[in-house]
């Protein structure tokens, strides 16, 4: 699944925790690990990285350190392309003092343009984190199918307790039909009917994928995609949220008129794995 993993690393306090998590993924997928650091190559820095690698117990035979200069986002994106990585790992920023985690401008740029899948670690803990509860957003697309398969594989390896498929949908214009029915009850009934319909579609979707081995929960949420799943995953204290990458590059407009993903990255509910084609 992930044979070449990259880690965007800086000498921050959380750097070592990020590295530990990356080392875990390297081991899990038997992958090559590339540490990408943007900055001047000083001997003291080289030594610091080596110490970090030892502390994180990284398999040194399968790990390379890449030093790059220039604009951090551009350099990281270019390196991902050059190395043909399958997965890039990076850390989120913490918003003081609200203990909220969000994506900074560099990470945002990387997220938009990176050609591979992306794992954003919300708050790398000292001990390596296990993904006990994984949520996967589905929209029935082929990329969504890939996200479910990847999540399933990860869940099997992690011995995950709960793999939850989340379908979010909203029908624009529905509330305005209250005007004609004159009753909230009728609109609510229509909404419930559609939720049942979507639940049944999810059932069929999972059947088609034929994933057996671990139990899969399915949940259908009505409301703004991204916002509903974020709220839900927070409430159940999920560890990882897997979602297919947006079908198109997110632009400035998507921040103003929020795209689904924007709701998630504005206030990360947990670690985030964005699957790209």
């Amino acid at each position: 699944m992930f044979k070449k993993i990259g880690l965007a690393i800086a000498f921050s306090p959380s750097g070592i925790n990020l590295l530990k998590q990356a080392a875990k993924m390297q081991l899990m997928f038997n992958a090559e690990l590339y540490l990408i650091h943007v900055g001047k190559k000083e001997s003291s820095d080289e030594e610091a990285i080596e110490n970090m690698l030892i502390e994180a117990k990284v398999d040194r035979n399968n790990c390379s350190v890449i030093w790059k200069k220039g604009d951090p986002a551009k350099s990281i994106i270019k390196t991902c392309q050059e190395l043909d990585l399958n997965l890039l790992i990076m850390g989120a920023l913490e918003k003081e003092p609200a203990l909220k985690y969000y994506i900074g401008s560099v990470a945002r740029k990387i997220m938009r343009q990176v050609p591979c899948s992306l794992l954003i670690l919300k708050a790398p803990v000292k001990d390596v984190k296990t993904y006990k509860i994984i949520g996967v957003q589905i929209d029935y697309s082929s990329l969504s199918e890939k996200s479910v398969r990847y999540s399933y594989e990860l869940a099997v390896k992690e011995n995950t307790e709960k793999l939850i498929l989340i379908r979010e949908f909203k029908v624009p214009g529905l509330t305005i039909t209250v005007y004609d029915s004159g009753s909230i009850k009728e609109t609510q009934e229509t909404r419930n009917k559609w939720i049942d319909e979507e639940s049944l579609k999810m059932e069929m979707f999972v059947n088609e994928l034929n994933l057996t081995g671990i139990p899969i929960e399915k949940i259908c949420l009505y409301g703004k995609a991204g916002w509903e799943s974020t709220a839900y995953l927070k409430s159940i204290e999920a560890d990882l949220f897997v979602l297919p990458a947006p079908k198109r590059k997110l632009e400035m407009f998507d921040r103003i008129f929020q795209h689904d993903l924007e709701y998630v990255i504005e206030d990360l509910p947990c670690d985030l794995l964005i699957i790209k084609n």
Binding site: L174, T175, I176, V178, Y179, G182, S183, I184, T187, Q188, R191, Y222, G223, K224, W227, E228, F257, Q258, Y263
Partner: peptide, 23 residues
């Protein structure tokens, strides 16, 4: 209306209030 915090049922209550009396 764009607020994700504004729940659908709240919107429906507002709609009902306006469209059954004022409209």
């Amino acid at each position: 209306g764009d607020s994700a915090q504004l729940k659908e049922n709240t919107k429906e209550i507002i709609h009902q209030f306006v469209t059954n009396i004022f409209a």
